[in-house]
């Protein structure tokens, strides 16, 4: 058991190094305008993701349960989710610039994880539920997708400042397409966030006897959900499309981060474990 947790520990730090290398690679790709560096960075990030997956599996087996139950485990899973979704979007839309913006966020998240206690604690009865895995894994994908929307929102807002036509026009889609790609990531995120909230409500009903009690974490997940609903409607309205929607994509992720970190830090509630 303990050896697995030690392996996890080593892998975890290797993953941080790889993500850092990938970030440098993406930055150099933009700085030196060399396409091969983007490919190399994506490969390093993919290797990082594979080791990260191995680390999570080691932790799961070592702890004898899903690695999703405390701040450390959720932070590292969150970084994993953002890494996964950003790689999918980089590959699908041939858009490595996403990596340059996502990598610092991934490092922040995994850095936050590194500062948390890694101790394997016993699970309180209410957390011993088959809903745990579904609830948290959908949240990880939702948060990862919203991280990508955030990155795309920022790229959208910076797009006009990208003056060096040759390089940027080749590597960053037009505002119209950026909006469509951002929309894809919000769709993925909102669908999974809805799964998270509904599974959470079903679980809360079983564990606490009430499916919705306006606990701060619940409330903030609703705020996040509403912000992205506004984003969707802004996009449909002609005239407000684009810039305002991009701002909401950015604000939405700030809500996500607040739901995740802020609520635990500033607001008391029954969701106190993660």
């Amino acid at each position: 058991m303990n050896t697995l947790l030690n392996v996890e520990n080593i892998l975890f730090y290797a993953v941080i190094c790889l993500y850092f290398l990938a970030m440098i690679g993406y930055f150099l790709f933009i700085g030196l305008k060399k396409e091969r560096l983007a490919k190399a960075a994506a490969i390093v990030q993919t290797v990082g993701l594979l080791l990260h997956t191995a680390a999570l599996i080691c932790r799961g087996i070592g702890a004898g349960r899903l690695p999703m139950t405390n701040q450390y485990e959720f932070a590292t899973s969150f970084a994993w989710g953002l890494c996964l979704v950003s790689l999918v979007f980089i590959a699908k839309f041939k858009f490595p610039v996403i990596g340059a913006f996502a990598a610092p966020v991934i490092l922040l998240l995994i850095g936050y994880a590194a500062m948390q206690s890694k101790e394997v604690k016993d699970l309180m009865p209410s957390l011993r539920s088959s809903w745990l895995g579904f609830h948290v894994s959908t949240a990880i994908i939702a948060y990862g997708s919203f991280g990508v929307s955030f990155v795309l929102g920022i790229i959208f807002l910076l797009r006009e400042k990208m003056k060096d036509k040759g390089f940027w026009d080749q590597h960053v889609p037009s505002r119209e397409k950026l909006d469509l790609i951002s929309y894809r990531s919000v769709c993925l995120g909102l669908l999974f966030l809805t799964f998270t909230i509904i599974s959470g409500a079903i679980w809360a009903e079983q564990a606490w006897g009430s499916y919705w009690s306006w606990d701060p974490k619940e409330t903030w997940s609703l705020v996040t959900w509403l912000i992205y609903a506004v984003y969707l409607h802004l996009r449909i309205r002609r005239g407000w499309k684009g810039k305002t929607a991009a701002v909401f994509a950015v604000v939405g992720f700030i809500c996500v981060m607040f739901t995740y970190v802020g609520v635990n830090t500033f607001l008391p509630g029954i969701h106190s474990y993660a």
Partner: peptide, 10 residues
């Protein structure tokens, strides 16, 4: 509504 919920949590 989003603002009201945020207020209600603070």
């Amino acid at each position: 509504l989003a603002a009201a919920c945020a207020g209600g949590s603070f």
